[in-house]
Every structure is written in C-alpha cells, then in structure tokens.
Design a protein around this nucleic acid. Sequence first.
DNA 1: TATATTTTTTAGTTGTGTCTAAAAAATATT
DNA 2: AATATTTTTTAGACACAACTAAAAAATATA
Lengths: 219, 219
Amino acid sequence: MNTKSEEDYLKCLYHLQQGKKSVSTNEIANYLSMKPSSVSDMLKKLAEKKCVNYLKYKGSLLTKKGELIALSIIRKHRLWETFLVNKLGFSWSKVHNIAEQLEHVNSEELIDKLDHFLAYPQIDPHGDPIPQKNGTIAKLNQKLLSELKNGEEGVITGIKKGTPSLLNFLDQKNIKLGDQIQLISILEFDQSAEVVIHKKTINLSEKICSNLLIETLND
Amino acid sequence: MNTKSEEDYLKCLYHLQQGKKSVSTNEIANYLSMKPSSVSDMLKKLAEKKCVNYLKYKGSLLTKKGELIALSIIRKHRLWETFLVNKLGFSWSKVHNIAEQLEHVNSEELIDKLDHFLAYPQIDPHGDPIPQKNGTIAKLNQKLLSELKNGEEGVITGIKKGTPSLLNFLDQKNIKLGDQIQLISILEFDQSAEVVIHKKTINLSEKICSNLLIETLND
DNA sequence: TATATTTTTTAGTTGTGTCTAAAAAATATT
DNA sequence: AATATTTTTTAGACACAACTAAAAAATATA
C-alpha cells in the first residue's frame, strides 16, 4: 500500500511524463506546489520502492509498476468524477477537489461496484478517458470545434482554456459537458460557426469554437 | 478543520460516553487500539481546541462543539454505508471499513447531495439512526415485526430465532439484514402481515413476523 | 575555458501522531 | 494507615512528509 502523498507523486509523474524522456525535479515541485528538496526526498523513496526510475540530477520516469499504480488512481479519480456529475448532479467544474480526496479511498471492490453502477463509462465528465481495470487507457479522438468538418458531430467533452467569461457564456447558454453538438458550417468572414445544439441552430464565435473540445463519434 | 485522527477520537468518544458521566483514557485506548500515552496527548490537544472537557486523571467528555463534530462524522459514515448497500449492492456486513475511509472526505456539498440522492434516509443498513444536518439524532427502538403499528416502518436488523428453514425462506425471498420494511396491516384471521419490502407488497406469516427484529425510529 | 547561473541534492529542522519507559496519581489490598 | 497495584501522564524517541539553508552538480554565458 502507498500513502496519499506517494499516490499524488505517482499521479503527477504520469501526467508530466507524457511524450517526454524524463521529468525534472523542478517540474514536479511546481506541479505539486512543493519545494524541490521535498520532491528529491520522495523520488528517492519511490525509487527504492521500484515505482520510479530516478537518476540523480537527471530526472525521473515511472516504472511499469509505478505507471500501473498511477493509472489505478486516475481510474478512481475519473470514476468518482463521473459519479459526482452523473449521479449527484454536481457541475463538472466543481468535482475535482472532491475527487482528489475520494481517489485515495482504498477498496478494489468499491471501485469495481462503482464502475458497474455507472455502467462502465469510458470517458469522464471532463472528456478524459477512464483507464480500465487492467491499466489500458483509450486514446482520445478529441478536436476543437473549429477543427470539425462541415456536418461533423460529436460530444462536448472539454474546454481548452476555461476563462471565467467563457464559462459564464456557456453557463448562460446552458451548454454543458456531454452535450451533443454538430457543426453546420464555418462562416467565411469572421470564422464564426453555425452549430446545432439542443436541437437549435446557433452561432458561436471563432474564439469559442477554438476553445471547445469535441469528442467525435467516428473519424 | 480537523485531522482524520482527531475525527476518529471524537467519534470514539461519542460512542463511549453514551449514558456515562466520564470516559477513561484506557477505554479510549482500548477502543482505538492505541496506547494510553497516545490518548493522553490527543486529549490534551482536543481540550485545547475546546472539543473535549478533559480533567487529568479524571476522564473526558465531549463538549457541545465536539459532539456536533462527532455527529457530523457519524452522519457521513451512515450516509455512505447507506449508499454502499442501497446503490452499490454491498452486503450489510462489508461496508464498515470503506465507510470509515469515506467519512473523512471533507465536503459539505457532497454530503448534502448524497443525502438528497439517497432520498434523505433516516436509518442506515445496520438499523442505526442517521444524524440530521443540524445534529439531531433519533432514538432507536427495536421491535418484532409483529409488534409494529400499521404503517410503521424500519430496518431489518436481526432474527430472534434463526432456524435453517427461516433463513432459507428469507434467502429465497432475498430478504436481508439492512432491508427497509413497512408494515401495512396484520390480517385478523391468521395474524399474517402485509408488508412492503423491496418496493413490493408481500404477505409474511405470523411465525416469520414474530422472529424478525425491526429497528424503528421513535416518535 | 573559466565563470556565472540555475537546478538539484544534502543536511538539518519542524509538526503530527504514534510509540516505549519511567514517573506520578488514583485506587485497591492488607 | 501503609503498601501494593492499576491507571494515567510525562518525557523522550521515531517515522513521515513537509520545510529552509547551504553545498554540489549541471547548464549557460562571457
């Protein structure tokens, strides 16, 4: 078993190491809002536990063991977020902190039953894929609304850069994660888009289109 | 905010102090599987926080403040147990350890929404009353099913005389400890009972009714 | 290449919550 | 009442996970 702290480091490393050959101590410290010296200590400890490959002054990477643990925490986090939004009626933007706590609750049977209760979801309310029990994780087929082809449709799964004014706008229009959306066309003169959402056709500005992430159903 | 450890002590004190004028350090140590010296330290700390009235060598009692915190933890514990049994399908007897972890998750909104999702339950699957948000808690009353008044409801918490044939019958009907049950009426001619269980109305013989223990809420 | 700067590690400190061992207080026994 | 026993507290130690300050290594710059 791992402590909450160890789990936080492993999860952080998973997120930071994507597409890189090594993660620096400072990056981790920055991500976790801690001092580099604290990170050094923990990396040494995680290396001893064979969860991290750590070379002094050279950076770190998860081992296979560490990656599987990280994925299991991310799985728990995303399942709980799905629960909070789909069952308890939380808004997608308020669930993160609660899921950060729930992800550390330790019971395999609990997660199995929660997964079943939620009908084995594949994507969480933020549009991120939920790792399976065996550690496999689907790749995203996520694009910006502005990148869709005319006629193409998908599900709103995320927001690229969530400024308060954008969130406000979406709130006002009652546009939420999980909503189905179809691009009709992008207008030549200002790159704004005609889209169908909630069965109505509306116009969304270029700025909005380039900030809405859409999970497309088929390529 | 209180630490997990402080919360455990307050909850423990709440359970131990019922009907007593003081709780000894050894009792607490025994209940929590800790050494008396550790308990002394923590009692001093909780006394400083005005959660416990603590007199050296004389024992402890919760203050009103401490009692309200304890009740809020117990409320969380019992709501989570209800969720685990009623929604996730856990058996009555396996939820305690998981609820011990979940009860320390800190979010008032989470508990409010969970309470709503569970339709504001009054009794948990063990038949214990769930404290309300304001700290009020109902008193318990265990009766035989045959002693309930018409319309009265409660939770099945035990069996008076568990013959194999009775256990078999209950198993066959999928009637388990922790199930909610409501008496509609007792029929004159054979003292059998019309009850609602699992949202269906069924008839239970007098023999069964006089062997099922039901935990009810007092008025 | 030599030096300056940045990054990272080491060494030592702190706070929390546990422990053991010893001292002190309360209670029981003779 | 004096002594023995039990209970409780105090004192000091330890593990954990953070910290600060200083040293060491790596990298950038002149």
